[in-house]
Design a protein around this nucleic acid. Structure first.
Lengths: 332, 332
DNA sequence: TTCGGTGATGCAACCGATCTCAGCAATCGA
DNA sequence: TCGATTGCTGAGATCGGTTGCATCACCGAA
């Protein structure tokens, strides 16, 4: 309670401020015995270094912005959770910044946090964020991008979209599906595009028609795709749908339900993300899982590497398959 | 880019530091013309006050911790989003703190942020957080609690549980249901208890049996409740279930689906929260909506009032009904 | 005994603001 | 005309640390 400062500790320990400071931040520069004594006194007084004062002098704080378009989406929720843990492990404090998908917001957050001497930032870009523009912002050069294709100028960590889609297509193909459609995504449109490309490639390869139920974005993708599907003739109608991400899959299944189409009895649906919530959907969602927890720690690692060596790494993670109940053998 | 400080502005404007400072933080204390000039110079130099330095000197920052047990839960997601917006409106910067439901974490966050001179904190308590214990923490006395029953010592904002449950029961009763069960909640156990009490009261009043399918917590509530339900005989089985919150409702419907029980054909299910995601569930969830957006701004208001007048307000909001497709007339 | 080197500590400036107090000019009342 | 009041502004201490530099004791070598 009684705000104890570095001078209190110094006085009580009979040394100078600077020695106390060094005892904490540059241990090798102070005599072992002195250090031990100082630390004990500090402990007994309940002293903790003031992060603001420290940041001001050092021009480097422990505040790290995590910039996401929409925290309501559990994907970003899970990302935020693991990232917060990873950050805490390294002494950082995550500052959540929700942009609503607006570039201006992203930039505003970035400059605002750079004023607080944030050492770097983590950005999970939305559809509308132009990554090149990030470079113009103060903190722009010290940013790690999550969930985005390899990009030259800043470090990135992503999941291999092609491999993920392959996993999904193979799974469905193995169940006998030959008419597999695709719906693109509410958010993360960059990866959504990758996934779409992967889907089209595989469709060609397997000699299946490429059916894009909806290529748009926004909260109504599921509705539109469902509407489109129910208006197809029996022959042209797909027997399975791959959604660009779990949220789209949920919306699609819901919209199909409203229209009396049952999943997986009439049509199989797969997601992409592997959200924990998928296990509580109705039906439980079969999906391609991204190692979100890994992405969190890797992003922080990349950031620290960037600061230390100026090295901009690009990590591509492998997804895996989570088979639950939203897919079934093709109905005949 | 070129970090411009208050002295740069002062020099360029031909006045002293202190005048520049006053021009920003105490406009009435400086000559209008001088002020205008200073502000123009500042503008042209791209000067912005350094929040860290300001906070250090003033012993009051703009950082506000929002402490939630689980950001993966869209309820807290929506809360975080609206709260962040409300905070930004007033110049605050929300710092997201995810506790995983652990008291120690909550306290750690609170003290850590009080070291950063956070003016106050917002806590959405989890099951295990003992509110009285909050008082012992540094920031403890300057905390607003969200989603928690009226409590004497700190300001709170909640939704009227009794009214919400009444809304739900009335809705179901109106559909002809006479055997209405209840399942308690994954999170927010405080309110969950209130809601349970309200349910029991109403059941008695309407002369219906009170059936608690599961009164526990944790991620498996839905599973357990579903398991219990399917093992009931036709006569004792409820025709409708009220879940303590939306997430439980989702889990329950999913678990029922796995066991071949269809909602709402065989049993109606209602949630409590009004999550946007409910509109994309299968079936779309009928639920009691909490005005989450209002809760966000009100919480900030209460906090500011607490700081200014030392007044600890308690706001109870009215919920409303969101009728969608998870409830239907009682099957006969 | 003297001197260079080394390790540990103290001194004081500094980070970028705020704020109390003093000084100064203009204005006011008598 | 003169002291008191009022309105602005400058000086400088301060918030709580960090860090380059000076100091000093102590060491072994010459």
């Amino acid at each position: 309670m009684a705000e104890v400062s570095i001078d209190d500790v110094a006085a009580r320990a009979g040394v100078h401020r600077s020695t106390v400071s060094r005892a904490f931040s540059r241990p090798e520069a102070v005599n072992a015995a002195t250090r031990k004594h100082v630390l004990e006194v500090a402990e007994s007084l309940g002293y903790r270094v003031n992060p603001l004062a420290q940041a001001l002098r050092r021009r480097a704080s422990k505040l790290v912005p995590l910039i996401v378009p929409d925290i309501t989406n559990p994907f970003y929720g899970e990302l935020a959770r693991t990232m917060a843990a990873a950050a805490a492990d390294r002494g950082y404090q995550l500052v959540l910044c929700v942009t609503g998908g607006e570039v201006a917001q992203t930039n505003a957050y970035l400059t605002s946090l750079q004023e607080m001497y944030a050492p770097f930032g983590i950005v999970a870009p939305s559809t509308t964020v132009d990554l090149d523009e990030l470079q113009n912002v103060a903190l722009g050069s010290k940013v790690v991008v999550v969930d985005r294709v390899k990009q030259a100028r800043v470090p990135t960590v992503t999941v291999d979209s092609a491999e993920g889609i392959a996993l999904a297509v193979d799974h469905l193909h193995g169940l006998g599906h030959r008419r597999i459609a695709y719906v693109s995504g509410i958010s993360g449109a960059y990866t959504s595009r990758d996934r779409l490309a992967a889907y089209e490639g595989l469709a060609a390869e397997l000699d299946m028609p490429a059916m894009i139920l909806d290529g748009g974005t926004g909260p109504d993708v599921g509705e539109r795709a469902a509407e489109r599907l129910v208006h197809m003739t029996r022959e042209e109608r797909p027997t399975a749908v791959i959604a660009a991400n779990d949220m789209v899959a949920f919306a699609l299944i819901s919209a199909l339900g409203v229209r009396g189409v049952s999943v997986p009895d009439e049509v199989s649906v797969m997601g992409f993300d592997g959200l924990e919530f998928g296990a509580r959907f109705n039906p439980r969602l079969t999906t391609v899982r991204q190692p979100i927890a890994d992405m969190g720690v890797i992003a922080i690692d990349l950031a620290e590497k960037l600061l230390k060596d100026g090295e901009t790494g690009h990590v591509v993670l492998a997804p895996d398959l989570l088979i639950r109940e939203s897919t079934a053998e093709v109905p005949r």
